[in-house]
Amino acid sequence: MPEQKNKDGIIAGIRAATAKQEMNSEVLQEAPAAERDTSGSRISNRRMNAITASRGIQDIDPNLILPWGPKDRLDVELTAVNSEKDKNEQVFDQSVVELANSIRPPGSQHVPVLLRPSENQKGRYEVIYGRRRILACRYLGQDVRALVRKMEDKDALLAKGLENSSRADLSYYERARFAQEILEQGYTNEEVYSALSISKNVLSQYTRVTNNVPNSLGDKIGPAPKSGRPKWTTLAVALEEERINTMQAHNMLKDLSPAMSSDQRLDHLLSHLSKEPDILEPVNGVKIKTTSGGLTMKVTAKDDPAFANWLKTNIGELIQESRERFEKESGTEEAG
């Protein structure tokens, strides 16, 4: 199948370019292969072709790297740096600082990032994957080791998805948000299946979470790396069934200590969920649902279309009469 061959080609290309035994570090730091005399090189033509095709592993100034594509981490934002002032004012996440400390000695970054040349800004690159490593090198003020390849958007997305699918540190919610971002950028469900190596059922589960948990709330909770599908689905269903609403959830999180982890924030929300909503069906086709967030009524027209149409016409008057009755009864009770 063409799509599978494309995926295999990307994997093979990345492996060929990153395998240490296939590389000669001195050659990689020189000019591109087309500008060199390779007659005395010990690198075989086959290996040289792989290096030339991928443009090899290079040392790139991280300030020349631009963000690209769907975001796959909640706590890592790669922004363009255009001046020394921007560089000095950038705030780095603690996880990026910790990574920077682990790659502080030059040459300690063993896994390269994947970049492609920017078509819009000459001399700049767009990141396919490796944002945290880029930020870590930017924090250290040192070059980042990068594999540079010319790639179309779909191939770049596939490479990003393949790299993400092999990482254990991406949380369930981050993967769901990554899938959401891919779809919002105009890609099809089939392209998401391929990019993330997931099934239709898994994408459906991701979508249920992202459709019902607003991004603003998900950002407030955080990636919750120890929390999997059951917890996020529980929250999504509670929001869907209106056992809690977004404002209530934000208020519950507002006063929590900043020291609380994202997993603890999610657990805090789940511990305050009300039980299943009370549902009353006074007549056929009418359901009244009572939750901690309020009361909703649903009228199914197919059960009794004539009554549904009558109710639609008279609902305002009925509610007004109910309100007047409520105020009268409440006043009588208070007077007694």
Rank of each mutant, 00 (worst) to 15 (best):
M297F: 10
L135T: 02
K200I: 00
Q4I: 15
S194Q: 11
P105G: 09
M297W: 11
S274I: 01
P282T: 09
V299T: 10
A335V: 08
E329H: 14
R138T: 02
G218T: 06
G107E: 07
G293Q: 15
V97F: 05
D93I: 05
I198V: 11
T188S: 12
R15G: 11
K160Y: 00
S108D: 11
S227G: 08
F307K: 15
G107C: 09
I57D: 07
W310I: 14
N201K: 07
P214F: 01
A306T: 14
V192M: 01
M48W: 14
P32C: 08
I198W: 00
T291M: 13
L64W: 02
H272P: 01
S274D: 14
N101E: 14
I198D: 00
I182E: 00
V237R: 11
K328F: 07
L295A: 12
Q58H: 06
P106S: 11
E184W: 01
L162A: 09
I288P: 09
K150E: 01
R15W: 12
P258Y: 03
V209K: 06
N120C: 00
P214G: 02
L253N: 06
M297P: 06
G107F: 09
L273Q: 04
R175N: 06
V76M: 06
S261I: 02
V209S: 03
L318N: 12
Y172A: 04
I14N: 11
P70V: 10
A19L: 12
T300Q: 15
L217Q: 08
D155P: 04
S108T: 08
H250N: 12
V286C: 10
E89A: 15
L99Y: 13
G107T: 08
A16G: 15
H110V: 05
V213C: 10
I60C: 09
L239W: 06
G222K: 11
G294K: 13
K254N: 05
S330T: 13
D72I: 04
N45I: 09
D169Y: 08
V202T: 11
G186H: 01
R42A: 15
E242W: 11
E321C: 04
L114D: 03
D155T: 10
A176V: 03
R47K: 15
S257Y: 04
G141R: 07
L256P: 06
Q58W: 06
M23F: 05
L266Q: 03
G316D: 13
I14D: 10
A17N: 10
Q21R: 06
